[in-house]
Design a protein around this nucleic acid. Structure first.
Lengths: 216, 216
DNA sequence: GTTTGTGAAGGATTTCACAGCA
DNA sequence: TGCTGTGAAATCCTTCACAAAC
């Protein structure tokens, strides 16, 4: 986990390296800025400059999925963005559930950055009777006992864990039991998950702790 | 980022791979849990099990820094934790400044996870006259024009960027100009920084966008 | 002239496997 | 016996360099 803090337990990967998959969203982001700026063609060198990545790496990464460029010219910005979005599964919306409605969970459900990218938080869970049934950011908090049922009925594919560390593993187990295969984990812990479940950790302390090495 | 989303522009690295440095904080974390649980010896296999890392990798990682174990026995938990903390520079406190006191900045300054790990947020900055001079979580918000002066006077070594994307690069430039070498960036952008400055990005959307590949 | 796509080369990281020590 | 530390091997990832396409 850069920060990393990543755990991919997928079983039979096609054979695209995990690192490549993680760079694609960066490319999508730059392409979308580039097209907003009115450019409709981009070269691997221009794309690389924005991301401090070599042009060769970008071309190699893209070559895992097809031939998207034109020699002598570069890539059509809108087309490449569309292709990458489709490869990543970003050409649809994804429903997510947040578990843990303390300070952090509240911050997450009210974060305005998810929805524009197609990630919709459609349910919020907590154990505390004091919080269950409250309405937070238009979501009625549910008891965690209703997790599996809700995951099914609302077609939830992503779990976001914002509980304190001492309940994080059990919440992750519950999400896995409910059939969730993608988990965004804000708890400062490397959870155990079965094969086929992907966890990404968001852990600012871990990031700080590795940066200090370079300035100590 | 891994969570990825990392940019290390350090110049003359000793020659310890960056990935190794990023795993050390994970080891520290497990060691600290382990010692709270009352164990005083741990093997590379036990440590690896907790983190889904092979024992060989742990031993190899540690071997960059010295010989900390005892054959036939394992590692003294407290000793190893202390050594790793010292290697990472975690045996002291670090002062940090948050720039951008909107929703995200407020969440960051009130996050209780930094202080126990030795990261003290000692200053908060914003551009908006409406916010400057307000007190948020015991910090009086300062005008960004006082950045360099404050970095010096408060011995700030870490910058935390929580401004909107369209001001993020200029804020990062300002931090670099003020002499900051470690930046934790919450803005969804890969900033340009000179050599010798390390940036770690916290970017939940990017994490989600690479997970969907595996479930699409 | 420019820039892609890609085998081949190079470099980096991980894993193996075992000698050596407690 | 049990487990570390570490060269060597294996694997993985990045960069090179150039033929082909526009």
């Amino acid at each position: 986990m850069a920060t990393s803090n990543i755990s991919d337990n997928s079983s039979s990967e096609s054979d695209v390296p995990e690192v490549v998959i993680q760079r694609l969203p960066l490319y999508v982001r730059v392409l979308s800025h580039f097209s907003s700026a009115g450019n409709d063609v981009i070269s691997s060198e221009q794309l690389g400059n924005r991301l401090q990545v070599t042009p060769a790496q970008i071309r190699k990464d893209l070559s895992y999925f097809g031939r998207f460029g034109k020699q002598g010219r570069g890539y059509d910005v809108a087309m490449l963005e569309g292709q990458l979005r489709s490869i990543l599964g970003l050409d649809r919306t994804w429903n997510a559930a947040v578990v843990g409605m303390g300070r952090l969970g509240r911050a997450v459900v009210s974060y305005p950055g998810f929805a524009p990218e197609g990630f919709k938080i459609v349910a919020a869970f907590d154990t505390s009777a004091a919080i269950v049934d409250q309405t937070i950011s238009k979501l009625t908090v549910r008891s965690i006992s209703r997790l599996t049922e809700t995951v099914k009925s609302l077609d939830i594919k992503i779990g976001i864990v914002t509980v304190p560390i001492d309940h994080a593993q059990e919440v992750i187990d519950a999400l896995v039991n409910a059939g969730i295969k993608s988990i965004l984990n804000y708890a400062p812990l490397s959870p155990q998950v079965p094969e086929g479940v992907t966890v990404r950790g968001i852990d600012p302390v871990l990031s700080l702790q590795s940066m200090t090495y370079y300035i100590r």
